[in-house]
């Protein structure tokens, strides 16, 4: 663990102008993505999905259905990729892992007292270790927003670093829960803290707080990733989660990613969508491009 005294002063993280960010985002959303470019984007987006169920009412039955869907997005449409991963609570990891064995689909588990993160470090670490021991390839942790908002950046940093250590070889996604951070400057600081502490991915939201992922927030995080890359040559992944439910919006996110970080990030190793209903909207669009007519929801299975 790094000594907190040696940490950068995260209060000096680059500042962000809110209106400027929104104007930039508006430019991405006016890109016109058609035909072959669109099909390519739709398939890529499908391939970047972390298919998610994070409910108190989750059951083995629900998880089984989701895993099947992850493997068989739409068997009637040939040439589809699979999703990138499924994302579940730690107690469902073992089952998901078994269901997906032999496939390229990863199993991600939330941990660290998701979604609030309000518990002791010991419990967070044991939560993480449990998920990994159950077979999780990826761990989605939440940061301590209360500590962050108090300005206790060293605490937040060290906690992430400790969880990263507990992850072993599993990739760590650090959820900032941007909906609770109030300003884009805070989003930037939290991104810098998470990246510095060893995050493999930074992620916007738990999906339990509104607003969840937005394009402005995601752009700020992408810029933090870019600055880190400029400085160190090391890539960090990005995962917007929550609120991205339409193919149109997903393509706009891809445009933003593409024009901010470039070609190298256009893969599910470096970008994910945390979403549950996005897949079907993407499928409807793929089907529309392949078949011609606009599609209806009842022709695509929900789970």
């Amino acid at each position: 663990m790094k000594n907190s005294n040696a940490l950068p002063d995260f209060r000096t993280s680059p500042v962000v102008d809110h209106v400027g960010i929104e104007e930039r985002v508006a430019r991405f959303t006016t890109r016109s993505i058609k035909k072959a470019s669109k099909v390519q984007a739709l398939k890529l987006a499908l391939n970047m999905i972390d298919l998610t169920t994070l409910e108190g009412k989750d059951t083995p039955g629900k998880v089984a259905q989701m895993c099947y869907k992850a493997l068989h997005l739409c068997d009637q449409l040939p040439g589809l990729p699979t999703v990138a991963a499924v994302c579940v609570y730690p107690t469902h990891v073992r089952q998901a892992k078994a269901a997906l064995s032999g496939s390229p689909i990863k199993v991600a588990s939330v941990a660290t007292a998701f979604p609030s993160g309000n518990t002791t470090r010991e419990i967070k670490l044991s939560d993480t270790r449990f998920a990994v021991s159950e077979g999780a390839d990826e761990v989605d942790m939440v940061i301590s927003r209360g500590e962050f908002l108090q300005g206790n950046y060293a605490f937040v940093h060290d906690e992430i670093a400790a969880v990263k250590e507990a992850c072993g070889s599993a990739r760590l996604k650090v959820i900032l829960e941007t909906g609770e951070l109030s300003t884009l400057d805070n989003v930037r600081r939290a991104s810098d803290i998470a990246i510095h502490a060893g995050a493999d991915f930074i992620k916007t939201s738990t999906g339990k707080i509104q607003p969840a992922a937005t394009m402005p927030v995601t752009l700020v995080m992408l810029q933090a990733i870019k600055d880190h890359y400029y400085k160190t040559g090391k890539m960090v992944g990005m995962k917007p989660a929550g609120g991205i439910s339409t193919a149109k919006l997903a393509v706009q996110y891809l445009v933003m990613l593409h024009e901010t970080l470039g070609d190298a990030w256009m893969t599910n190793q470096w970008f994910r969508f945390g979403a549950s209903s996005l897949a079907n909207d993407l499928l409807m669009q793929v089907a529309k491009e392949a078949r011609g007519p606009y599609q209806g929801k009842d022709y695509f299975s929900n789970d």
Binding site: D17, H18, V19, G20, S182, T183, Q210, P211, T214, V217
Partner: peptide, 13 residues
């Protein structure tokens, strides 16, 4: 000069 729009009713960033 830009005016950020945080905290207004219905605003989100």
């Amino acid at each position: 000069h830009p005016i950020e729009n945080i905290g207004a009713s219905g605003a989100k960033y």
